[in-house]
């Protein structure tokens, strides 16, 4: 056994153990590390935000792009929520963000999630796998058909569609489980190999 002498490795390992201690029961070590983590992460987000602000807003503004005053004013208006008499002013920047995001998301959704998916579905349908993909897509879509209730023998279509979706969810679940387990293995390797020096 060759225990690490690096203070950073000690901190990382002890913090990881404190996090895993929640699996036994809620305790002081877990909540302390959790608070430190939230503080550091929030601080990091602010530091990154300030750097981004400098490069995307401040530098162009100082360089002569006076139109950048608009987002600065709108950004400042977000803070009016702390002053009840003028708190309604924070609707303006929110409207800017929501309107733009809706427009941008709409373009993205139409292009990548509708047109691209539909055109990728109707390809080489004589191939059994491609045909199954086509069938899965169409039948899954019938499950979301809510204009009127599908009755009789046709009600079998959304049912089969649901089976396709359950297969997809099972696959996604299995994938997620394995992803998380590999993250846990990575942490255990850090604790046992890098910190305690076992098996190195």
């Amino acid at each position: 056994m060759n225990i690490s002498t690096d203070i950073g490795v000690w901190v990382g390992a002890l913090f990881a153990i404190a996090i895993y201690s929640i699996l036994y029961k809620d305790n002081l070590a877990y909540s302390v590390v959790e608070s430190i983590f939230i503080g550091a992460t929030t601080g990091h987000a602010i530091v990154v935000g300030v750097q981004t602000f400098k490069s995307t807003a401040w530098t162009p503004l100082v360089g002569g792009k006076l139109l950048f005053v608009v987002p600065l004013i709108f950004g400042a208006l977000l803070y009016t929520r702390y002053f009840p008499s003028v708190s309604w002013l924070n609707r303006w920047p929110l409207a800017l963000m929501m309107g733009t995001s809706a427009g941008v998301a709409m373009r993205g959704a139409i292009e990548s999630q509708v047109v691209a998916q539909v055109s990728a579905t109707f390809v080489n349908l004589l191939d059994i796998n491609k045909f199954l993909i086509f069938l899965g897509t169409v039948l899954s879509l019938t499950y979301f058909f809510l204009t009127f209730q599908i009755k009789g023998k046709a009600s079998l279509l959304p049912k089969i569609g649901r089976y396709f979706m359950m297969a997809a969810f099972g696959a996604a679940f299995g994938n997620t489980v394995m992803g998380r387990i590999s993250a846990a293995i990575g942490r255990f390797q850090f604790i046992f190999v890098k910190w305690l020096g076992l098996g190195s």
Binding site: A109, L132, I133, G136, A168, F169, A171
Partner: peptide
Amino acid sequence: MEVLNVGGQRGVMIAGAIGFVAVS
């Protein structure tokens, strides 16, 4: 992953996108 998952997910994705466009 390449057949059943794609078929099921694609249906969900298209249906979700149509709803998303409506909300937008």
